[in-house]
Design a protein around this nucleic acid. Structure first.
Lengths: 162, 162
DNA sequence: GCAGTTTGTTGCCTATAGCCAACTGTTGCT
DNA sequence: AGCAACAGTTGGCTATAGGCAACAAACTGC
């Protein structure tokens, strides 16, 4: 799309640089938090848990669409997660073709554990931010997050809101 | 767990919240940028490329250690990357036991492409930040990135500096 | 009630990632 | 020269992820 970035008087390069820098640190944090449960779930499996946690119980087709995989792949991944007791597979009485995939308590616990780890690592980092600048950081990041949300064209996160 | 958050003067909860929020957006951006080359390299393979890009040509053992995998796994992954023309495998004349793994031009291009995509998406987001707040965002994120760097115990990123 | 459509599942296939154990070369030391 | 230690590779194995195509079951319309 290559839009001329001249819209901004003060060029955005340094801004992008600083965001990218912070981004690497945050991705590393996320990856490490995920690695902590790596012997329980794989990354694709964790994506399933996150989608179910974020969007609630789903049929198989919407889930597969959210993950961007084929139905057969979704079926088998859910099978593994059911076997591990992290996902519950029920067939509603109304339409017995459908399947309702939902997180079990254990499944929610896995997501909660990863999130807690992530928050912990983030807290350790922000503890190193000078207290008098923290309010500023909150403001700036909120502005950034909001901008990210608005810039959400369509399926922005595309099932990657880890 | 319900720990009283009064330990910190200005309690860090909102700070952690805002960072976590921004973090999700940034992880999604990184994931999408990676997905763009998913038909060329897998995530583990991309990690190899990134390690080689960041630390320069490596022997097999250090590379495997950086990735946290066994030597045999590293051998085969590099084999696949060599087959794809993204990594170069040479044996120096001095010690012919060793192997020098290095990125090829194409390998560097893959990393550059992902980085460029990421920067592009980030730029699109920051373009949505009100101009008068951008300087503030730079300051805040720099402070955060710096704090993350200092909090880097030892193998902080653990080969996950994607 | 029968035909057609929707919704998942299963068979069959490929490729990757990962490990341990055994092996081949090389180098270095005695 | 000979042997031990080192650096990678390979054999053999398991599990996951992913797709396509064929299928069974259930619902919907006529």
């Amino acid at each position: 799309m290559l839009v001329a970035p001249r819209s901004t008087p003060l060029d955005v390069e340094p801004l992008v640089d600083s965001v990218l820098h912070a981004s690497r640190a945050l991705v590393a944090v996320a990856a490490r938090s995920l690695a902590a449960v790596a012997d329980e779930v794989t990354l694709p499996q964790y994506r399933v848990l996150v989608v179910l946690a974020a969007r609630g119980p789903q049929g198989l087709a919407p889930l597969a669409a959210a993950l961007g995989v084929s139905p057969s792949t979704a079926t088998r991944m859910c099978g593994r997660l059911v076997r591990k007791g992290l996902v519950q597979r029920r067939t509603p009485s109304r339409d017995r073709r459908q399947v309702r995939l939902a997180l079990t308590e254990a499944g929610r616990a896995v997501v909660a554990q990863v999130t807690a780890l992530r928050r912990g690592e983030i807290a350790r980092i922000v503890a190193a931010v000078p207290p008098e600048r923290r309010a500023q950081v909150v403001d700036a990041l909120s502005a950034f997050a909001e901008a990210a949300g608005e810039s959400a064209d369509r399926d922005w996160t595309a099932g990657w809101e880890l």
